[in-house]
Each structure stands twice: as C-alpha cells, then as structure tokens.
Amino acid sequence: MFYHLTILMIIYSITCIGLNIVVGYTGFFSFARAAFFGIGAYTSALLVMSGVPFLIAIIAGGILAAIFGWILGLITVEMTGDYFALATFAFAEMTRQVFINWTGLTRGPLGLPGIPRPEIFGFRFSTNQAYLFLYIILLILVLLITEMYVKSPFGRLLKTIREDETAAQSLGKDIAKTKNIAIAMGAFFGGVGGALYAHYITYIDPSAFVLHITIFFLIIVIAGGMGNNYGTILGAVMLVLVRELPRYLGLSPAFAASLQQMVYSSILVILMLVRPRGLLGERKLLSEQSSEEGGK
C-alpha cells in the first residue's frame, strides 16, 4: 500500500509540475491535462509494446504531447481566460474521442492490456520497490529541470504573462511565442507522467483520461500552491491520500466515493477561503542576497 500510494503521488507530481508551469506560472487555466496525460500514456505504451526501449518511449510520449501542446498554443494564441479554458477542454474531449474511436491503434474502449513494465539496460523493474526507486529518480530529474527554468529569466517572463500581458508586450516581450513554449513544456511533463502511469498500471483505456482526472490535477496544483513546484508535490501527496485512503478503511465503495467527493470539495472551499494561493504560496525567487551581490 505504501509503495502503491507513493508511486501514484510521484506520477501525479510529475504531471502536475507540468500543469503548474501553465496554470501557476503563466496564469492560464488549462483543461487539457487529461489529453496530454493520455497522449503520453498511449504513445509510450504502444512504442514499448512494439519493441522501443522504455526510456526512449516515455520521452517520445512527452514529445508527442508537447507537439500537440504547441499546436494547441498556436490555435489559442488570441484567447484569454474563459475562452482559453473552454478551448483546452474541447481539445481534451476531441483527444478522448480519438482514443475511443481509433480502434486500429488504441483498441478503443477495450483498452490496452499488458503494457510492459519498465526495462532499462536489461534490468526489469518488476517489484514496487524498484518502481518507486526509478520514479523517485525521475521526479528529482523533473524537479531539477523545472526549478532551473522557473528561476531563470525565462520563468520570470512566464510570470509577466500571468501578471499583465499587455505590459509585457509594451516592454518588447514576444508573448505569443513564450506562452506557446510554456504550454508545450507543460504538455511534455503531462505526457511523461501519462507514460509513467501506463507502465505502472500496465493497462489503459479511454476512461482513464476523462475530465474528472483533469479536475483532479487542477485541484492538486491549486491546493498545493500555484507557482510553487514543492507545493505541487505536497498537493499530489494530499490528494492521493484523500482519494485512495477511503478504499483501505473498509468502507463500502459507495460511501467511500461520496466521502471522497465531500473531502475534495471541503479542501477546496477551505483553501480558497483561508489560503487562496494554495498551501505553499509562491516564493520570492530573487532574494535580498542576490541583489546585494549584484549591488556591489
């Protein structure tokens, strides 16, 4: 149970760190997360099943998701706020319909069973302990990369889009391009997360990529702390516990499900009232020290 929950937390953390780039840093509410998660999952699963090595397959899953993210960015370049959210939602639904109807590739509602477990240089990660080890390393890698980005001038540029697009444009910033990169980056990690999910659960079908899971991811980011990667991880830990624990408490499934919904909603309402920017808010990344150094 411990390994299972922790592995789920890591998969969702990686996915939501990507979502946080778009929602937390760049300030766009995207409802396309399930689509990228699904694209990554299907791509990687199908590639590994046809003999491609695991590491290459998950990266390919991420890249294909990023390409779709880029295209979505191009289409939605003029949209802000509600319109952007609706467009991404439509995109996610379209993607799900493709999963369902392209039966030649995805086997449609039957799903893909028997997705191979990860194998790197001949070592097969078959136990949950081995999984956890591998996924922790991947999480650290993802965290290092995204932290490097959000602390860089690029990350600061993302925030200006969230804060005031018009002002950023007046300073000569290419908002359209930067926004596009952010969506593609976010989609990449969503795809990688989906791939990791597929290789852990070993079975995927279109019902795993519905709006419900997108909302779940959004709550992780919002509850944990928008614009803070560690907050996202905290959010994933919290939400996985809320979602999975009732199953282990010996409650009837129907009761467990409604309890889960109630706890979800309560968490959201309480947080919005008490800490609207999430448990861990955004950090001030440009510290006193660095400015003192620069001042000398």
């Binding site: 980005y149 690029f154 600061r156 005031d164 018009t166 400015s291």
Partner: peptide
C-alpha cells in the same frame, strides 16, 4: 500596469530587452 505579484526588483529585472535567458534553450 505593473506586475503586482512580482517584487519591485523583479519588475525591473524582467524589463531589459537584451536579457539573456528568456529563450527556451538559454537556461
């Protein structure tokens, strides 16, 4: 039109047009 949720220093640092590190591969 300032950037409200950024510090005063960040508001200034982000402005120069020759900033290194604003491209995707720069970092």
């Amino acid at each position: 039109r300032i950037f409200p949720e950024m510090t005063v220093l960040e508001n200034l640092i982000v402005a120069p047009q020759d900033n290194v590190g604003e491209g995707f591969f720069d970092p």
